[in-house]
């Protein structure tokens, strides 16, 4: 068992990473922040993360593709989808493909951390995250 929850955060909006990155660290997790989906995919291939958070609507690669890549790599990793375009069809597709949860923009850091905590909980990291949230 690892000490800290390993999180990858991918969103082509830089501010999302800028704000959530420190918040996640403060909550006691390790986080790698990416704006470029391709780089993030490369990193996913190198390293197995506990949680992958990805925006769905990005210029070159969409979140569903990231989800599929992660699923190919590992069954354990929890994938959380962030979307500004929350539609029922999209949510169903994401869930069908094995996403852990979906967060609709706009959200508060608290809401985001709560979902991370839920993921940590299901992975057995409950203690640290709950304390941070």
């Amino acid at each position: 068992m690892k000490e800290k929850l390993e999180i990858l955060l991918l969103d082509d909006e830089a501010i999302v990473g800028n704000r959530l990155g420190p918040a996640i660290k403060k909550a006691g997790c390790n986080v790698e922040v990416f704006e470029d989906p391709q780089k993030a995919l490369n990193r996913i291939n190198e390293k197995e993360f506990d949680v992958v958070v990805t925006d769905i609507m990005m210029a070159d690669v969409n979140g569903i593709q990231v989800l599929e890549e992660v699923r190919k790599k590992s069954d354990k990793t929890k994938v959380i989808i962030i979307t500004g375009y929350a539609t029922v069809a999209l949510a169903r597709e994401a869930m069908d493909k094995g996403a852990f949860d979906i967060i609709a923009k706009p959200f508060r850091p608290k809401d985001f951390l709560a979902v991370i905590a839920k993921a940590a909980d299901s992975l057995g990291y409950k203690r640290e995250i709950v304390a941070a949230a």
């Binding site: 909006e13 999302v16 420190p22 500004g84 609709a104 923009k105 706009p106 959200f107 508060r108």
Partner: peptide, 20 residues
């Protein structure tokens, strides 16, 4: 309406971070 969610989200995250 959807596109507005991106800047709104950025504002919300930033404002809350500042508040906290």
């Amino acid at each position: 309406a959807h596109e507005l969610n991106n800047p709104l989200n950025n504002i919300m995250l930033t404002a809350h971070t500042m508040l906290e």
